[in-house]
Design a protein around this nucleic acid. Structure first.
Lengths: 354, 354
DNA sequence: ACGTTCTGCGTAAACGTTTACGTTTCTGGC
DNA sequence: GCCAGAAACGTAAACGTTTACGCAGAACGT
């Protein structure tokens, strides 16, 4: 076989080349590259210079092979019907993750997984040794992949909580409290009939925010009424249609005066549906979302929301995973970040009955 | 050194193990794994079964090393001040890219690069042989990284156009025409004073959309007036402030009756600024954006926009890159996808002067 | 002068695959 | 019965690193 070359004909520079040119062995070159001791200052300087001049870069693959580590982690997103990447929250998160990883010399590869697929093809990654750790962005209830990873003792951190998994590492925001406080601020404004456009009940996020909604109602002495929970689906289109139908079909005196939506992503079509029915926001119906997307403050009306430190969540998760991989001390297996309600013009007091 | 083990104590299964258990050589095992000819049906069946039972997965790194290919491509995003991932467009694109890559057995790793950084640290990736190709999501004028990649004859595809690079592979939407048609539809509605909130003039996107704006004006016999081009910055906050200041300081009779914004991302704060000044959309000012984010149709008012097949752009780029890597025939080095104006309620005719 | 310790360096094995090449066995044609 | 060719398989090199180990010579103590 002929020697491997680049397409442009120049041969790829290898450690052996450097060694020959420097008149030393590859071991010595390797030592200077890795800042290992055992090489004279003179040699170290000369070899460094050579490397610099030739623009030599050690081959990652070869290094990974012998090190038995790829310095790569996988970010596995829940692929809820192709909608996930469209959600700004995931963008913010990815950004946080990436910044931490690259500044620690790690890289990330992203994949999505189908919420309904059963094959767990993601396992190939870890069996094939191509990633050192996994960030699970979102988990199902009793998530089988998370379960499998735990059994294999493979380093992973869940973003969001994993109901049904004990002692798993995760970072999350306090969804229950966040939802609770959103609803509570509606109550404080005088609202008594509050609807909730909930998220997928197959995900912890959806379950927890619904739970916060429920608790706030109970604590306020209001009945938790399932008919006020709108399980709309995953897309904006579905949300629009469901909410519109809901408000069309409800008697005026039973109509909710406020809606708490699963997230800001959903709040936009909710408001649209209300407006299209001739209902004013917030005069007739107040709306509050969750996540506090950067755009929410500029919407019309500016959307009240629960601020969630999404990007920080990604960063914390990445940091925790790196510690896990490097076998460092971890202060706490669980990190819960706090949220806070941001009141904006989409909020108002219910108008007195005519 | 002791034999490498997993953390849970079980040794990682290797091809040698399979070979021993099957009573054959590693070569034979390798052949069945890769569906190569030269192994009896009997052996093939037996070995396959063994692999299945043990859940054996070939080590990616070792395979990559000998194959001199990682089946990984890098998606390099322009990190315009940390805003990029917040832009829905990038999310949609990533999704398109990822789906094509994974269905072809490739993986992707994402990184962002600082628009202003000079070091080109991304080159380490290709020198270190850790990616087979690169998708450049966005390029600067005379982009040095793109230039370098071209010189090295390294497979890459630009998403968006690369001004200053001849014969580079890229997929893009027709930004000039898209912008042109947006402005043209404003003209058709009777608008004569049309402002443009432009994108970064350091990027091709920004330049091209401005150019489309300019051409439409000229073609309509309207003067291109630089004072109507608002170079607002990169963040929504900056856009809000600039646009607000612009409309505050302009004489009523010179006030634009319509605004074409660089993208939908910018249109949201633009509308907010107008509303905050007591201007109605579209009664006083019409607004049209670009990209047609999935949310735009639900905004208040529903935002007219130029529909851009963002996800398809990602897919086409990924497909082209794969062909490039695999040395296949490429029909066309450049792919231009078409756009079309989506008219919505943010558009209206200018009100006659009072 | 002679051990001992340290420093600097090279040798070679190892990481887990793929694959060119050689060898054996089988098949079939004459 | 012989030989050609094919089929099935094994051997070993190669991919480009890291690192345990060994060895020479210097430095240092007595």
């Amino acid at each position: 076989m002929t020697k491997r070359t680049n397409d442009n004909g120049t041969e790829r520079i290898t450690m052996t080349d450097i060694a020959k040119m420097a008149g030393v062995s590859v071991a010595t070159v390797s030592r200077v590259i890795n800042d290992s001791p055992g090489v004279s200052d003179e040699n170290r300087k000369r070899i460094s210079k050579l490397i610099e001049e030739l623009g030599y870069q050690p081959n990652f693959t070869a290094r990974n092979l012998v090190r038995q580590s790829t310095r790569t982690i996988a970010v596995i997103n829940m692929q809820t019907l192709g909608q996930l990447h469209a959600q700004p929250a995931s963008g913010r998160m990815l950004q946080g993750i990436e910044s931490v990883l690259t500044s620690n010399g790690y890289r990330c590869t992203i994949l999505s997984r189908d919420e309904f697929a059963q094959d767990m093809s993601e396992l190939r990654l870890i069996k094939g040794g191509s990633v050192d750790g996994i960030l699970l962005n979102g988990a199902k209830l009793n998530d089988p992949l998370a379960l499998e990873l735990t059994q294999r003792n493979f380093p992973f951190v869940i973003i969001g909580r994993a109901i049904g998994l004990v002692n798993s590492h995760y970072v999350d925001i306090d969804n229950v409290f966040g939802a609770y406080s959103a609803v509570e601020s509606l109550v404080r404004l005088g609202h008594r009939r509050i609807a909730h456009v909930c998220g997928s009940q197959q995900t912890n996020l959806g379950v927890e925010r619904l739970e916060g909604y429920r608790r706030a109602l109970l604590e306020a002495g209001l009945a938790y009424n399932e008919s006020l929970v709108i399980d709309a689906g995953l897309t904006r289109k579905e949300v629009y249609t469901s909410v519109r139908r809901f408000f069309e079909n409800i008697a005026q005196e039973e109509r909710p005066t406020a809606v708490f939506t699963f997230n800001d992503f959903f709040a936009i079509p909710v408001i649209r549906a209300l407006l299209d029915l001739g209902l004013q926001v917030p005069r007739d119906v107040s709306v509050i979302g969750f996540d506090d997307d950067e755009a929410s403050q500029y919407l019309n009306p500016p959307l009240a929301s629960v601020r969630a430190p999404i990007s920080e969540m990604g960063m914390k998760a990445a940091e925790m995973l790196l510690k896990l991989i490097q076998g460092k001390q971890i202060d706490s297996r669980q990190v819960i970040l706090q949220t806070r309600v941001i009141e904006r013009d989409s909020l108002g007091s219910p108008s007195p009955p005519a």
